[in-house]
């Protein structure tokens, strides 16, 4: 079985959240190939940005319903600005930026994934403040379950963080596992 989803992620917590969500949606561990920025080597955002063009090129070359899913925090920038930096890096490396129809999904939590965790726990976070981290990455399992249930009901709880709404729109491009 070959990997059909490449998960390019800036840290373990975001990767764990995304992987667990995909598994809730029917994907299996063997479907997913994770590429996670190594801790202690500077900015995870930069690591993702610099590798995005080569992963995009690889996914295009592979075709065959392969999906590139990118996880990177917006931090203090806007979601659109963060996605723009990825496309600019493509141009810098001579790779065509992603097009709207390509199976490339940008998951860009603002301020970071802990903001979404706070929302999924039932709080009403803003996207500017920093929220506490979990001691263990796997502690996000209940948040993943909550998000999955919201997806199944077709609606996020209001008011949802705009960055989560944007990610849900991106996720519409995810093909069915057996598609």
């Amino acid at each position: 079985m070959s990997a059909r989803v490449v998960l390019l992620c800036e840290d373990q917590q975001l990767a764990t959240f995304m992987r667990r969500f995909l598994k809730r949606r029917g994907w299996q561990a063997h479907d997913i190939r994770e590429k996670i920025a190594p801790p202690g080597q500077g900015s995870g955002e930069q690591w993702v940005r610099e590798r995005f063009p080569q992963e995009l090129a690889a996914v295009r070359a592979r075709g065959n319903n392969t999906v590139l899913t990118v996880g990177t925090d917006a931090d203090t920038r806007s979601v659109a600005a963060r996605i723009a930096t990825l496309n600019q890096e493509c141009q810098r490396q001579g790779v065509s930026p992603r097009t709207a129809s390509e199976p490339v999904i940008m998951v860009v939590p603002k301020r970071n994934i802990e903001t979404w965790f706070a929302y999924l726990r039932g709080e009403s976070p803003n996207e500017d403040d920093a929220y506490p981290r979990y001691p263990n990455e796997s502690d996000c399992r209940n948040d993943v379950r909550t998000l999955d249930e919201m997806c199944r009901s077709g609606k996020l709880r209001d008011p949802a963080p705009p960055s989560l709404q944007a990610a849900c729109s991106e996720y519409q491009k995810m093909p069915a596992r057996n598609g």
Binding site: T16, R20, A29, H30, E34, E137, S138, R141
Partner: peptide
């Protein structure tokens, strides 16, 4: 290797 590792990581707490 990675699928087994990610399954292991996801089993933590379960």
């Amino acid at each position: 290797i990675q699928p087994w590792l990610s399954n292991l990581a996801d089993a933590i707490g379960e």
